[in-house]
Write a protein that binds this DNA or RNA. Structure first.
Lengths: 128, 128
DNA sequence: CAAACCGTATCAGTTGTATAACACAGTTCT
DNA sequence: AGAACTGTGTTATACAACTGATACGGTTTG
């Protein structure tokens, strides 16, 4: 069963996109595997305090990407082969990093200044 | 006069927040100084192809932060002392970097893996 | 079988963002 | 003084995101 323990609702960003991202992150990090049970729409909506429709929207889009398989009436499961994992991993890693690099460049930082700042902030948080 | 040449409207992110960010980035990078003229609401709305009310909302919030000074009827100017510049610089640099570091940690990357990925992507773009 | 769950669908309502069309008063400049 | 700008404010409209409530039929389990 996929866990939503460390999941906290962000501010302005659409909830359904946050959920999609959370699951993709879990897959990329290896915390979520193949044929793993997904929380039901109702259960997750109750846990997060959001509307079931919002969860449905997120799951539906994940199903369009082939990451989730749903059968009417039954529980939903993940469906991630090795190619999918690699694809998601590249998508998230390279995407986020490119955005950050662009932001740092626009702020006028040099490569080493930016990397130094990141290295400093890495230690401030816990773990890794 | 503040330039909006290299400014392109993004996809889903609110336009008024993009405008606020663009001006703050210019100040943090040193491209925008003190007592610099800000494009009029009407002129900028025509240039970007958005509604004047959207520009007004962005300028109004910048005025609340003390970054812009507006006198009814006259042109608007920036108002940024050294403390403000430092504050904005920290806000943008540390904020973006903290978000990126958190994302990389959640993806299961080590510090060196993340920094290596960033260093690679830094070269791919132009300049700096 | 029957209860309890599940996915799926529809409807109306609220909020935030953006558009559109104005109006009014203060300023700058010729 | 008068024209052309400026900032400011109002109202109505549109759309996407999210909420709230409800319903239907399929699956699972005791």
């Amino acid at each position: 069963m996929i866990s939503f323990e460390d999941f906290v609702l962000g501010d302005g960003y659409p909830i359904y996109l946050q959920i999609i991202r959370h699951i993709k992150q879990g897959i990329a990090a290896g915390a979520i595997g193949h044929q793993e049970e997904v929380p039901s729409r109702r259960a997750l909506s109750a846990l997060l305090g959001v509307n079931p429709n919002t969860i449905q929207k997120a799951y539906h889009m994940l199903e369009d990407e082939g990451i989730i398989v749903s059968r009417s009436g039954a529980k939903s499961y993940t469906s991630v082969d090795e190619d999918t994992v690699q694809h998601i991993r590249r998508e998230l890693q390279a995407g986020d990093t490119a955005v950050w690099v662009e932001a740092m460049k626009r702020l006028g930082l040099s490569r080493d200044q930016a990397l130094g700042l990141a290295a400093d902030l890495w230690e401030k948080g816990q773990e890794n």
